[in-house]
Amino acid sequence: MTPEQTGARIQEALDHLAGADAQEAGEHLVRELMALYGDALARLVQALPPAALARLLDEPSLAGLLVLHDLHPEDVTARITRALATLPEPVDLAAFDPATGTARLRRTRSGCGCGEQDIENALACHAPEVTAVELERPAELLQIGARPPAGPR
């Protein structure tokens, strides 16, 4: 489909927005725009050398668009790992259940670090398939220090 054809379809949808079927026309308009952007992105992805595309995958907005149009070259596990690598504190993927959308994550060290909201935000663009996060926390170690100084007996 050419941009001109898409433009004509978009104009047709806009003309319908004035009528009673505005919601249907709006949804049609969104589908047409998604198709246009998806076709353009597909051509761009095909034209880019793999090394150039790989450098762009860390950009959250581009990664999100590639996922939305089913053009992202990485599988969901790789995208989850990529998202977790952007966090200030190490968090590893323990498991992902595609049936429930649940990612079980493990902090690799204790500390205050990033919260669950930070993790969910990182995952939102790179792996929208993740709909729930279970965060395993590392066991707290007992801190053993020197014996207190001996007092008078």
Rank of each mutant, 00 (worst) to 15 (best):
48 L>T: 03
42 A>N: 12
43 R>K: 09
64 G>Q: 05
57 L>W: 13
99 A>S: 09
4 E>R: 07
116 E>P: 01
91 V>Y: 05
48 L>G: 01
101 G>E: 10
82 R>L: 09
147 R>W: 12
7 G>T: 09
66 L>H: 07
116 E>Y: 00
20 A>R: 04
9 R>M: 15
70 D>E: 14
140 E>V: 08
126 H>I: 00
49 P>R: 08
145 G>V: 01
98 P>K: 02
75 D>E: 11
81 T>E: 15
34 M>T: 15
46 Q>C: 03
106 R>W: 07
56 L>M: 15
119 I>D: 05
149 P>L: 10
25 A>Y: 02
150 A>Q: 14
110 S>L: 06
25 A>W: 12
110 S>W: 07
107 R>Q: 13
136 E>N: 02
41 L>V: 02
104 R>L: 07
19 G>Y: 03
71 L>S: 10
108 T>W: 00
124 A>L: 06
2 T>R: 12
90 P>Q: 05
142 L>A: 13
123 L>R: 08
58 D>L: 14
146 A>K: 06
84 L>F: 04
58 D>T: 15
29 L>H: 04
108 T>R: 08
118 D>M: 00
125 C>K: 00
143 Q>L: 12
5 Q>L: 11
105 L>E: 08
112 C>D: 11
119 I>R: 05
76 V>P: 00
38 G>M: 08
1 M>E: 07
130 V>I: 03
80 I>V: 13
64 G>W: 06
107 R>T: 06
62 L>H: 03
121 N>H: 12
69 H>A: 08
104 R>I: 11
79 R>T: 00
113 G>A: 08
141 L>Y: 05
79 R>L: 05
108 T>H: 04
24 E>P: 00
63 A>T: 02
30 V>L: 15
2 T>K: 13
151 G>A: 03
35 A>E: 14
9 R>A: 15
26 G>V: 08
46 Q>P: 01
90 P>M: 01
101 G>I: 03
131 T>F: 04
78 A>K: 00
81 T>Q: 14
65 L>D: 14
39 D>T: 14
18 A>G: 11
98 P>M: 04
75 D>N: 12
98 P>I: 01
87 L>F: 01
34 M>P: 00
6 T>W: 08
54 A>K: 13
124 A>K: 07
12 E>L: 11
145 G>D: 08
88 P>A: 05
137 R>G: 07
68 L>V: 04
10 I>M: 15
16 H>D: 12
81 T>G: 08
4 E>W: 02
25 A>H: 09
74 E>M: 05
104 R>A: 10
38 G>L: 02
47 A>H: 06
71 L>R: 01
86 T>Y: 01
76 V>I: 11
138 P>C: 03
122 A>L: 01
98 P>D: 01
141 L>S: 14
116 E>A: 12
117 Q>E: 13
92 D>M: 06
81 T>L: 02
133 V>C: 02
92 D>K: 03
138 P>Q: 11
110 S>Q: 07
86 T>K: 00
37 Y>E: 15
11 Q>T: 12
98 P>T: 06
57 L>H: 13
119 I>L: 04
31 R>A: 15
101 G>V: 07
78 A>E: 09
18 A>P: 05
101 G>F: 08
133 V>K: 04
122 A>K: 04
139 A>I: 07
59 E>G: 02
102 T>P: 06
131 T>L: 06
14 L>Y: 08
56 L>H: 14
76 V>E: 13
47 A>Y: 01
130 V>Q: 01
69 H>D: 11
77 T>L: 13
